[in-house]
Write a protein that binds this DNA or RNA. Structure first.
Lengths: 357, 357
DNA sequence: ATGCTCGGTCGAATCGATTCGACCGAACCG
DNA sequence: CGGTTCGGTCGAATCGATTCGACCGAGCAT
């Protein structure tokens, strides 16, 4: 800490003490441009004596027009958004990729209040880019604001806006693939548990209205469409509040606590944590997974507490985050990024088997 | 987005178009100082026409000497740090409290590389304060750097440095309390599973050397001391890599997969997720919790996938985060914060019972 | 009428760097 | 030996705001 009462040292102070100009001192710290070794030493010496910890990042950023931060928008409370390990995996990959450039990740949530409350907050934040990976379905009011500021935006499907560079997966195709896998095993009575179709969705059967005119790049929507491509008549129950074990348990109970003849022999869950919830609900009700009930997930995350390996569509969250990070990096370097589609892979686990007879 | 090729509008552009001075335009956006309604209207009008989304946060920050961001240091990969819901709860509380001031949370991890690699990254980031809530035991190289920059630091026990404002709990007392609870139930053969004593600790018995000259405000150390206050001879196994279900499972197996006579009748885990791992290991081995084995946790987090309510020391992570946030806020407002100690409460659950006879 | 206050506006200094162009002397080339 | 190059250094402009002090009338009290 600087000696009390004394102003914090600046480049100018350091330069004066070293007997050089500010420009030269700047070159010493940035490493650009030639500086005589002796001069550099003197400057570093002066910096050390004054307790100068490096050029003020704010001033540097202003001059260079780089904020040194990319925003990560989070819908709702962090505790909600981070319940799903998939979200964390993506964030982790993003962080990993951003590590190679002088840029931090600014977490922007709305602990309380509506998504609209994000805009004024956002207006006060210096950002080089924004990532929406932790946002729910539906449009986001921040998109307009950020577009106006010319800040590049990235997401993994939602919000589905043309101005946002997307790292997508073929949600519908993937959901269809895993559904087909179940049909191949012989399942005919199959239900699905979905994530919310809209931010405002309530738990329960999916109202058809929530599906009309929706983009299949919204995960919950695309995956439901894919499921229906294979099981057109299958019941669909949606959870509220994103993807959570609790949601899966509740939906699982609702689907399974019925007479055996009405009970599905398999359930397609739209995320691994929801699937885990369904498995828990099934076992609570005395059913054995996969003998009595097959359950599939989506994401391919690690759930060390679940005594099963979920059959799931692996979409490699960390890799997805890394790709997002690469796109961000390239954009900051001046590139013009294109949306891309990531492959997903069916991963057979221990939660699926032919239906009981 | 601004029309292509055109420079982004600035306050000056807007002021010119509105026919006022830059100072006046500034007042319109900041709301400080009196401005005639008509003038304000003209300025806003001009801003709208030019697509001016508000004063450049960077310039504003530089002038005002506020970075608009507090850093949250994360040890290791995000995926690791966020495995424990407690960490997320604290972060959530922090976010909540920070919402009321124009400040974001900058996540700073070291996906790869050593903690030392944080310092150069940190040097390039503009920060008003730094929170260490997501760091492991042991010292942190960033402390020196941040102290030199005069950036206020906050943490929840570690690193234990006098320059950091702490929000502590009485780790030792709390661990002793829950240990006494077990002894009161009749347990005499009790072991403990701890978080790492040092960042470099490896899974297995705790080497005594790792305890010497350590502060009891380091959670893993303090809690182990508290356990030993009550069960001086109890075995202590530490996990590696922070607090995780996997660590708990591994340690649980090691402690429980032994002849019945050697097996502890209760295990004190240093976190809820570790406790959950121990419960899972026990049940894998055919033991019933709590009839055959009592297990206690620490933290008081919600684990919806665990078919038990853990007996635990509730330390209300979200509240802890809020307190941290309040301290940060007060400090930024000019206050001189004091470290405080939070109360914790024993919460009886369904994972403890008298020992089997 | 005089002197004050105060709302409203402005010019200029400032925050702390980066960077461009200019300059100077030494070395190098032919 | 004159001209060129280049390493090293510096001054000044610039990034885009905020804010302090000054200024100017209008309204108000005396």
């Amino acid at each position: 800490m600087a000696s009390r009462g004394q102003a914090r040292p600046t480049l100018r102070t350091v330069a004066e003490r070293a007997g050089v100009s500010v420009s030269t001192a700047s070159l010493v710290f940035s490493g650009k441009g030639p500086v005589a070794t002796a001069t550099a030493e003197r400057v570093k010496q002066a910096a050390a004596e004054l307790g100068f910890a490096g050029p003020n990042p704010l001033a540097s950023s202003l001059r260079q027009g780089r904020a040194g931060a990319v925003g990560v928008l989070v819908d709702g409370r962090l505790q909600m958004a981070f319940r799903d390990p998939f979200a964390i995996a993506v964030l982790d990959g993003l962080a990993e990729e951003l590590e190679s450039i002088p840029t931090g990740m600014l977490l922007i949530g709305q602990p309380s209040g509506s998504p609209e409350s994000t805009v004024p907050r956002l207006a006060g934040l210096a950002l080089d880019a924004v990532v929406f990976s932790l946002c729910g379905p539906g449009d986001h009011p921040a998109v307009e604001h950020l577009a106006a500021r010319g800040i590049p935006m990235f997401s993994t499907g939602v919000p589905a806006d043309r101005r946002i560079t997307q790292v997508r997966v073929d949600e519908r195709g993937a959901a269809a693939e895993i559904s087909r896998y179940l049909r191949g095993l012989g399942h005919r009575r199959v239900s699905t548990v979905t994530m919310p179709m809209l931010p405002s969705s309530v738990a329960g059967p999916v109202p058809e209205a929530e599906l009309s005119h929706r983009s299949a790049s919204v995960p919950s929507v695309g995956r439901l469409l894919g499921f229906r491509d294979v099981f057109p008549g299958g019941a669909a129950l949606q959870t509220a509040d994103g993807s959570s074990v609790e949601g899966g348990i509740a939906a699982g109970r609702a689907l399974l606590d019925v007479p055996r003849a009405e009970r599905p022999t398999a359930i397609v869950a739209q995320s691994d944590v929801i699937a885990a919830g369904v498995v828990i609900a099934a076992e609570e009700l005395g059913l054995t997974v996969p003998a009595d009930l097959s359950v599939t997930g989506f994401d391919g995350v690690d759930l060390p507490w679940l005594p099963h390996r979920l059959t799931t569509m692996d979409q490699q969250g960390r890799e997805k985050g890394r790709i997002l990070g690469t796109l961000v990096r390239r954009t900051l370097a001046g590139g013009r990024p294109r949306s891309i589609t990531q492959p997903v892979r069916l991963r057979e686990g221990t939660t699926t088997a032919p239906p009981p007879d």
